[in-house]
Design a protein around this nucleic acid. Structure first.
Lengths: 208, 208
DNA sequence: GATAATCTTGCACTCGGTGCAAATATTTCC
DNA sequence: GGAAATATTTGCACCGAGTGCAAGATTATC
């Protein structure tokens, strides 16, 4: 594997490694969901995944990171969705579509159960908030590509901050929604309200 | 101390306890600033504060919490400042004044050094983000008191989310500002820009 | 000063996480 | 196929954060 012998082939090693990683993730998740995050030890995870405790740390840097491993996918999806929007579309709309697209594609059983777990576990709440910060950084990056002047890029930074704020608040409100509500419908309605309210805030702030 | 013998007197016990707490905080902070958060052990803190390692945990639930202990004061100041604004003032303005007031009163040497420490220490970043979430919750609470209808209260929630987003972004931008800039001036100018940009985002979002 | 309540301490223990070196598996090259 | 190079897994010893508990020191109450 010095540089160039095979190329894109996935040897037995890579395969095994990927499988092991998946086994650990699966084991950890099921245990967390069964008996809670704090009541699960790494040794128990390792045992169920049939690896040693020491090997766990070859795959994940900490117990918490297993919970948030999926998160990168969300950010990548969002960035790709934004990049795929026409360059002359207003940033505000592009980011809305990007977010909704990422949300809808990420929303499944597992993710919801995970959210519930995080909400129940104080230890995980802090790390969960960091997730938003990381997302905001990525979003800023994606949006800055659309800005031409320095002033534009400052605007994009604020847009990212505001939109991530909306995402967080929207997530909370979504959790209070009656079951059976369509996530996509909710997301669209929410953004509609959001822009409207934003305009009002902006005007009130400038006036007075 | 069953219920009612003395009343508001501060006995020797309370005094000593407060002093000890301050000694621990002081010891921890100076050590963190000297050699970093991760390179400081609780035993070292305890030693410098002249208490046992076990006693440390009678005063702070964890090493991290020492760093964020001051944070409650900020939130309280902000809430008080908002509550003191006239009830007929637009919420947007009230929250701006409340925040600026809290920021200005909290900004000293120590706080800045602390911010630097947090930025340098990955361990602390997650917990730092939680700070914003807590602040947002408090802000929502303070603002909801101003809302009459359910719709109004929803608006207040979004306002809190957006404003905390601004606070976070503003903090970052402040850190990139040339030294010597007046914090108060910066804060006012920032909010001015912010409301303007917010109105633009709102209109773009509704249009299109 | 006796007694009750509270605070502090030491000790033993659990768990998360790391460094290291030996054992094991995989790939590569002949 | 087999030896050598390389990567992976494991066991072990260790550190530091944090907790429970019971004994000892302090402070408050009468």
């Amino acid at each position: 594997m010095t540089k160039t012998t095979g190329g894109a082939t996935e040897g037995r090693r890579e395969t095994k490694r990927r499988q092991t990683r998946e086994r650990i993730e699966e084991a950890a998740m099921s245990l967390f969901l069964e008996r809670g995050f704090d009541n699960t030890t790494i040794e128990e995870i390792a045992e169920r995944a049939e690896v040693s405790k020491r090997s766990f740390f070859d795959y994940f840097p900490s117990k918490e990171e297993v919970v948030f491993a999926w998160q990168d996918g969300f950010a990548d999806h969002m960035m790709a969705a934004i990049a795929s929007r026409p360059a002359d579309e207003p940033a505000v709309k592009a980011v809305q579509h990007g977010l909704v697209s990422a949300i809808v594609s990420a929303a499944d059983e597992r993710t919801m159960a995970l959210g519930e777990l995080i909400r129940r576990t104080p230890t995980l709440k802090a790390r969960d908030q960091l997730k938003y910060a990381k997302l905001e950084a990525k979003l800023t990056e994606a949006l800055k590509a659309r800005g031409r002047s320095d002033e534009e890029r400052l605007r994009m930074r604020l847009l990212a901050a505001v939109v991530i704020g909306a995402l967080r608040a929207g997530g909370e409100i979504w959790n209070e929604q009656p079951p059976g509500t369509s996530l996509e419908t909710f997301a669209h309605r929410f953004f509609g309200d959001f822009w409207k309210v934003l305009a009002e805030f902006g005007n009130e702030g400038q006036g007075g």
